[in-house]
Computed example of a mutant assay.
Amino acid sequence: MLLRDRRVSGQLLSVLFATVPLGMFPVAVVLAVHAWTGSFAMAGWVSAAFTGGSAVGLTVQGHLIDRFGPDRTIGVAGGAFVVAVVALVSVGGGPARWAPVVVVLAAVAGASLPEVTTAVRVWLARSELSSPQRVASYSLLGACFQTGLVFGPLLVTVAVVWVSPAGALLVVGAVSAAASAWFLSNVRRGRAESLPVVAAGEEPRMVARSSYGPMLAIFGIAAASGAVGGVATLVIPRVLEAAGSVESSGLLFATLAVGEVVGAVAYGAMRWPFGPVTQLVLVLAGTGVLVAACTFTTDRPWAFGVLLFGIGAASGPVAVLLASATELAAAGRAIGAASGARISVSLLASAAGSAFAGGANGQSGTPVVLAVLASVVLAAAALPFFLRRTLRAGHAS
């Protein structure tokens, strides 16, 4: 059993702990900026800046992990993230608040958020696990990742009630520092791969074993998935604000993340009667249909929450299948860079989704935003056909 291997279980726990701050920050920063400025539009731009910064950080940290190993990369990034969060709270909550500085600090926080998940994906891809074991590991990794995203919004809800939205941001910094320390302790105990794989001065090269076509399809699917999360970051608080309970936003974010946990675990545990290409088409099409259904439930938070759970459940298998496809489409020495690039595309799409949703005309514009998002996801359901050779090769091995 995979979890009996202390190296595997240690890596997966690191993903869970390190993902909690990622689940906390987008919710906390939207609530904090809204409390400071009274504007969801400004909150959307700050959230988009954080997400865009994360996209840059993923790419840069992916290259650094490939080149120098995770210990130095995560250690430096963890310290920079804490400094950026403290500066963001100091400037945003100060009397001389300057919006551009708040946006820049949010972007710096995103870029420096430690990419522990990327480091663990690299370790799994380079491990001696068999192909079925790696697929199972990716499912477990996805479950740990989404479990962290469940706890994140719930911790924000507690922090906002007990402290304040700005205090919740400081809690994010503290949790991130603790998670980074946990990961680094695993590295030092030899449970994580800490040796550089690419020699100094040698650039990792993406897609050495296949054409760029599969990676472009992967990026397209990742962008559609990321847009769902970005739109949700602004739509969820707006739906609850109209219902008079914006402070409970964390509960609906947690509902979305719980659905992703259930989806990832169920996907890894079941034997599917059709191949991975068909699986991807079905879950993407299902996601699009559920997002479209959300346009009719923005005035009923309970029904909106049920649909969010379904969207999350469909997203779980997408994450697992994209991780497997990336491993197959990228050269072994560039898996970290390829994985980082894929998630960067997702985060950039998420940033665009947040900015688009934040600029919508209040509550009345929410159904329009959701309708556009549903169209994008349904269009992306055709992209898995460009991954037929890549996914079938991995499925057969």
Score class of each variant (00 low, 15 high):
residue 243 A to F: 00
residue 393 A to C: 06
residue 185 S to R: 12
residue 303 A to M: 13
residue 259 G to M: 01
residue 371 A to D: 02
residue 300 R to W: 12
residue 376 V to H: 12
residue 268 G to W: 02
residue 52 G to Y: 04
residue 360 A to I: 06
residue 127 S to I: 10
residue 301 P to F: 01
residue 365 G to Y: 08
residue 30 V to M: 03
residue 52 G to S: 11
residue 217 A to K: 09
residue 77 A to R: 15
residue 148 G to W: 00
residue 129 L to S: 13
residue 58 L to E: 12
residue 232 A to K: 03
residue 363 Q to V: 08
residue 24 M to L: 00
residue 271 R to L: 09
residue 331 A to H: 08
residue 24 M to D: 00
residue 29 V to K: 03
residue 297 T to A: 00
residue 235 V to A: 15
residue 385 F to I: 13
residue 19 T to M: 14
residue 333 R to C: 06
residue 228 V to T: 10
residue 181 A to W: 13
residue 57 G to A: 13
residue 86 V to L: 09
residue 49 A to P: 09
residue 321 L to E: 09
residue 365 G to K: 08
residue 66 D to W: 02
residue 175 V to A: 06
residue 376 V to L: 15
residue 299 D to Q: 00
residue 369 V to G: 04
residue 222 A to I: 05
residue 356 F to R: 01
residue 274 F to E: 11
residue 61 Q to C: 02
residue 307 L to G: 03
residue 244 G to L: 12
residue 126 R to K: 08
residue 70 P to N: 12
residue 370 L to K: 03
residue 37 T to E: 11
residue 325 A to E: 01
residue 303 A to E: 06
residue 62 G to R: 14
residue 285 A to V: 08
residue 8 V to A: 05
residue 237 P to E: 04
residue 166 A to L: 14
residue 139 S to M: 01
residue 242 A to H: 13
residue 222 A to L: 15
residue 120 V to A: 08
residue 95 P to N: 15
residue 160 V to G: 04
residue 326 T to V: 10
residue 83 V to N: 08
residue 395 H to C: 00
residue 104 V to I: 04
residue 211 S to G: 12
residue 158 V to H: 09
residue 67 R to D: 12
residue 283 V to E: 04
residue 351 A to M: 12
residue 196 P to G: 10
residue 294 C to I: 10
residue 19 T to K: 09
residue 195 L to D: 07
residue 279 Q to F: 04
residue 85 V to L: 08
residue 234 L to I: 14
residue 7 R to I: 11
residue 383 L to C: 02
residue 234 L to K: 13
residue 86 V to R: 05
residue 27 V to P: 03
residue 385 F to C: 09
residue 325 A to L: 02
residue 184 L to N: 03
residue 55 A to T: 02
residue 167 G to E: 03
residue 192 A to L: 05
residue 311 I to M: 00
residue 41 A to K: 11
residue 84 A to H: 05
residue 112 S to T: 14
residue 82 V to I: 10
residue 329 A to L: 13
residue 143 A to H: 05
residue 284 L to R: 00
residue 36 W to D: 03
residue 17 F to N: 01
residue 281 V to G: 02
residue 268 G to I: 06
residue 192 A to K: 11
residue 276 P to Q: 10
residue 296 F to M: 10
residue 5 D to I: 14
residue 206 M to V: 14
residue 35 A to H: 10
residue 140 L to G: 00
residue 319 A to S: 14
residue 363 Q to P: 11
residue 257 A to V: 07
residue 110 G to H: 04
residue 150 V to P: 08
residue 108 V to C: 08
residue 196 P to I: 05
residue 249 S to Q: 05
residue 207 V to T: 13
residue 9 S to V: 13
residue 133 Q to G: 11
residue 86 V to Y: 06
residue 342 R to Y: 12
residue 221 I to T: 03
residue 42 M to R: 11
residue 40 F to R: 14
residue 366 T to M: 15
residue 173 G to Y: 14
residue 309 F to I: 07
residue 215 M to W: 06
residue 278 T to Y: 14
residue 222 A to T: 14
residue 151 F to Q: 15
residue 155 L to R: 07
residue 162 W to A: 12
residue 288 G to W: 12
residue 205 R to N: 07
residue 379 A to H: 08
residue 206 M to E: 00
residue 328 L to I: 14
residue 153 P to Q: 01
residue 253 F to W: 04
residue 46 V to Y: 05
residue 22 L to A: 14
residue 283 V to Y: 04
residue 76 V to C: 15
residue 68 F to H: 13
residue 188 R to F: 02
residue 92 G to W: 09
residue 284 L to V: 06
residue 214 P to I: 10
residue 17 F to M: 00
residue 147 T to F: 13
